[in-house]
Write a protein that binds this DNA or RNA. Structure first.
Length: 191
DNA sequence: GACCAGATTGTCT
DNA sequence: GACAATCTGGTCA
């Protein structure tokens, strides 16, 4: 089952946690790739100093302030892109960052894009999975409930997942907030 | 395995 | 002009 708009309308922490175990599917021109989401982070709105939304709406982060359930893809460090899911009520500026996937379908295409064959190196980081899945900046703002990029629920299995909560990675503000979530014991997470 | 520097450019102050 | 929600490849152990 695909996640519907109402799912994304919840706050970023809930969405980030419930995305664990679900399936990210990209139907690209080169082929279909599927990955199971195993690590996420929550970025809140104006009260979270580490969030792009902290200083209000700008051209770059405008998508975060739009309707939930859309893709927010941003460019950073001069060479990398990261993929987020916009969450919360329209206008609050929250998002869930997808940090790692367990690659499931389209392995050959993924290996080709990533230029490595080590399965643990394919999607173990936000910029890596963007490259592995063939996610491009033109998908910024695209609707995850109807576009080429979609997310499907893991079904009732998701209830059994043991979630580890930890501080977020790679930020210089609000480093103590426990807003990173990953599946306990999973081999495909970053780090 | 841990630690460190370099890459490289859009965006905001 | 500074810096960034990162990755890779190097060194040293």
């Amino acid at each position: 089952m695909i996640f519907k708009r109402d799912f994304y309308r919840q706050n970023a922490v809930i969405v980030a946690r419930k995305l664990l175990g679900s399936y990210l599917v990209h139907q690209s021109p080169e082929g279909k790739t599927v990955g199971r989401i195993v690590e996420t982070e929550a970025y809140l709105g104006k009260d979270d100093p580490a969030s792009h939304a902290y200083r209000g709406k700008t051209r770059r982060n405008a998508v975060m302030f739009g309707p939930p359930g859309h893709a927010y893809i941003y460019f950073t460090y001069g060479m990398h892109y990261c993929f987020n899911v916009v969450t919360g009520k329209n206008g609050v500026g929250e998002a869930a960052l997808i940090r790692a996937l367990e690659p499931l379908e389209g392995l050959e295409l993924i290996k080709q894009r990533r230029k490595t064959v080590n399965v643990y190196q394919l999607c173990s980081g936000p910029a890596k999975l963007v490259q592995a899945m063939g996610i491009t900046p033109d998908l910024n703002g695209s609707d995850l409930t109807s576009g080429p990029l979609q997310i499907f629920t893991a079904g009732i299995d998701n209830e059994k997942i043991e979630i580890i909560t930890a501080p977020r990675i790679g930020i210089s503000q609000a480093q103590d907030l426990p807003l990173r979530f990953y599946i306990k014991g999973n081999s495909y997470i970053s780090h």
